[in-house]
Design a protein around this nucleic acid. Structure first.
Lengths: 192, 192
DNA sequence: TTCGTCATGTAATGGGTTACATGATTAC
DNA sequence: GTAATCATGTAACCCATTACATGACGAA
């Protein structure tokens, strides 16, 4: 009936509120540690988002002003509604391409504890192949253009490449441990 | 008299056109290798940008349709105007905080070959301290919240931290070589 | 009493993408 | 002839930021 205010932010909020009800200010802080050292969310994004999620019934406002004694002042605590929980589950079940995007992946990973083992694996593998595609594109492009590039451009390219490699190695380790634990206790019926 | 269509994109275009005149399509390709494996520019950004830069006199269109035989079709080749070159020089002389941003830094670095040695050093050092700030913020935040975080969140945080560390090490090496070459032939009057 | 930080919000703006529209050229 | 890729552009939209506005609370 209204917004569609972003995928990632909404998901992040849903995921955080699933653990415990929170008010906007606190939510932002957690969001920013969650999203990693890069990119922070501003109030100008968060509050409108909460407003929309409230309007679409994903979350409910629990005005906790009166509650906890005379200590804390008017702050609006949000919690998930049944609909919100449902939406979160849908999102967490999604292991498709949308989950291997740069922005999505971090958030999806942060909520792995609430994600099924097979979906985790799918996301990890998808992310890895995504990075490998990118790696290949760079290397071929670099192969064609080498020698024409100055020292710095080359250095930059090299560094970017190594970053991707490192990321892939990280994913490899994670995938290995995931697979090991799935094999150890195959309770969640691997599709394979 | 109009736009202000982005800083980075404009700078990237100026820098690329400084080497040689190019048309939009080709420009985009180079832009995307330049900007690294992450983030690519779309035509929807580039063409309007070129339009604006044309309007503000930074670049000139050299319609090369007739020129090179019957081979190539109508494609608009852009080159820097005197004003454009001037603007580029201004930008390249800027070694202040704006140059250590995530988006800016990559582009600034890519044009280091056209940048004064002292400015290069300033940018490198600025970038490094920027990352170190970030690192510190993460570690303190992590120190406060450790033990309450699940395995995956922790893993993510850890990985982010290592990425930053790696970046810092890279910068350290670059700074060292820069300093060495400045000391070797101190032609560009180090401020120190 | 004033400063920092907690706390919530809105309006203007910015910088980008997607999808669309168009058409020529090249290779099969 | 038809598909891929070269080539240029526009309009609608998205997501987020900045700057602003407001105000209570705790500590110095």
């Amino acid at each position: 009936m209204s917004s569609k205010r972003s995928g990632v932010l909404e998901l992040a909020v849903l995921g955080l509120l699933h653990t415990s009800p929170l008010h906007g200010y606190e939510l932002r802080k957690r969001l920013n540690t969650l999203l990693g050292p890069f990119r922070a969310i501003s109030y100008g994004s968060l509050y409108p988002c909460l407003k929309d999620m409230l309007a679409s019934g994903l979350i409910a406002a629990d005005d906790a002003a009166s509650e906890s004694g005379p200590g804390r002042r008017s702050r609006i605590v949000y919690k998930l509604t049944a609909e919100g929980k449902e939406r979160l589950q849908e999102q967490l079940a999604e292991g498709g391409p949308s989950a291997w995007d740069d922005e999505s992946f971090g958030v999806r990973f942060a909520f792995f504890a609430q994600t099924d083992a097979d979906v985790r694996l799918k996301i990890l593998e998808g992310r890895r192949s995504r990075l490998e595609e990118r790696r290949e594109k760079v290397t071929t492009g670099l192969g064609r253009a080498r020698e024409k590039l100055d020292r710095y451009t080359l250095e930059l390219q090299q560094h970017g490449l190594e970053s991707v490699d490192r990321e892939v190695r990280w994913l490899n380790e994670l995938i290995a441990t995931e697979r090991a634990s799935v094999n150890a206790r195959p309770r969640s019926a691997a599709t394979n």
